[in-house]
């Protein structure tokens, strides 16, 4: 279930009364205004909305890389809105998998090393890390590109490596900010099929921002960001439990 009216309970992600203001000179921009959201495990949510409506802002807040002006975000029972910097960093490492539109991979590291990055923060041994990285790269179907550097990969392949990195530590949920924004139609379709599989086969929870209605259609639920709050646009009957 995905709700935007603030009445859900016992959900994986629970957002209440979220406000975010930016100060630009003397002007104050009120991007998010009392936003509510409930997302349960295994959901696949797409956020849409015009440019500047605050989609990235929302994702950054959910991912704990930005702090709200007011309101609270609870993930799996942990309230992240009051966590200190270092606690929040640890929380991100354990719970969030990020996929950005660009800037995803470290160009001087191979696909393998890029995917391994989140695991270097854990206590896993080298052998265990190798196993996890292998699995993640197999899931995104790039087992044959392990030692390639980002510049030796296509845009779609790069994005798949980024997804492998996002899932390798088995986080609570994935945040994808326009993951197909830089890709052609065919690569975009492949990425979406992959994300769908993560949700359907592996039970991942995915929150994604997109401008592309065709991409949004793949999600269970599409939410629109309007005047700083979310409005439900479409819900598919499949998948959600």
């Amino acid at each position: 279930m995905v709700r935007v009216d603030g009445n859900g309970n016992s959900s994986l992600i629970c957002v209440r009364g979220l406000d975010k203001k930016y100060q630009r000179g003397s002007e104050e921009i009120h991007v998010l205004q009392g936003l509510n959201l409930d997302v349960e495990k295994g959901e696949f949510v797409a956020f849409m909305g015009p440019s500047g409506s605050g989609k990235t802002t929302l994702l950054n807040l959910l991912g704990g890389v930005d702090v709200p002006t007011r309101g609270r975000i609870t993930v799996a029972g942990d309230e992240i809105t009051h966590m200190s910097g270092s606690k929040l960093t640890n929380w991100r490492a354990r719970h969030v998998g990020f996929v950005f539109q660009v800037f995803n991979l470290i160009p001087v590291l191979t696909a393998y090393q890029n995917v391994e990055l989140p695991l270097l923060l854990t206590k896993l041994s080298k052998a265990e890390r190798r196993k996890h990285v292998g699995t993640a790269l197999a899931v995104v179907d790039l087992s044959d590109r392990v030692d390639h550097y980002p510049r030796q990969l296509s845009g779609g392949q790069e994005q798949r490596v980024a997804i492998a990195r996002a899932i390798v530590s088995d986080p609570t949920f994935l945040l994808c900010d326009e993951p197909t924004g830089d890709l052609d139609r065919k690569s975009a379709d492949q990425i979406m099929t992959l994300i769908e599989r993560l949700v359907e086969e592996y039970g991942k929870t995915v929150l994604m921002v997109t401008h592309d209605p065709l991409v949004a259609k793949r999600a269970h639920t599409t939410l629109h960001l309007e005047k700083g709050a979310l409005v439900e646009a479409a819900t598919k009957e499949v998948g959600a439990s």
Partner: peptide, 13 residues
Amino acid sequence: GELAVLKAIGYSD
């Protein structure tokens, strides 16, 4: 950009 990604995925300041 890369340093920001590192931080986003859980590397500390």
